[in-house]
């Protein structure tokens, strides 16, 4: 079960990285970023998993799962959301200037 989630997250991470590198569409780049982030969050969440654990809410009924990764995940989701929101805002602004979201047409800066 844990292994499955790790493998899934690695696959998702690679898909995200591939999307960023291979796709010329800026929206797809952002999607790739979001995918990578989700993959990492999946790793963190599953790292706190204990077989047969209960939600870490008082009162405990048996062994509780580690709550710390959940807190990290929440923080990281907030951060990721702000990053992606900012990226989308930039893309909208650029789209208004270039009338395109294709990276091949947005090549104002060299190098």
């Amino acid at each position: 079960m844990i292994t499955l989630s790790y493998v899934t997250s690695v696959i998702i991470f690679c898909i995200g990285l591939y999307t960023i590198m291979a796709r010329r569409n800026l929206f797809k780049t952002v999607l790739g970023l979001a995918l990578m982030e989700s993959a990492i969050l999946l790793i963190i969440v599953s790292s706190g998993y204990i077989p047969g654990g209960v939600p870490p809410i008082e009162p405990f009924m048996g062994p509780a799962v580690n709550p710390l990764p959940h807190a990290f995940t929440l923080t990281a989701i907030v951060i990721g959301a702000s990053d992606i929101a900012l990226a989308l805002a930039f893309i909208i602004k650029l789209q208004r200037h270039y009338r395109s979201v294709d990276l091949d047409r947005i090549r104002g800066l060299r190098g």
């Binding site: 960023i20 800026l26 970023l33 982030e37 990053d83 990226a87 930039f90 893309i91 650029l94 800066l109």
Partner: peptide
């Protein structure tokens, strides 16, 4: 300006990675 936006987006994507 469009240069600044483009540079900002480039920075954002690489920085986020």
């Amino acid at each position: 300006s469009w240069q600044a936006l483009e540079a900002g987006l480039k920075y954002l994507v690489l920085g986020t990675i």
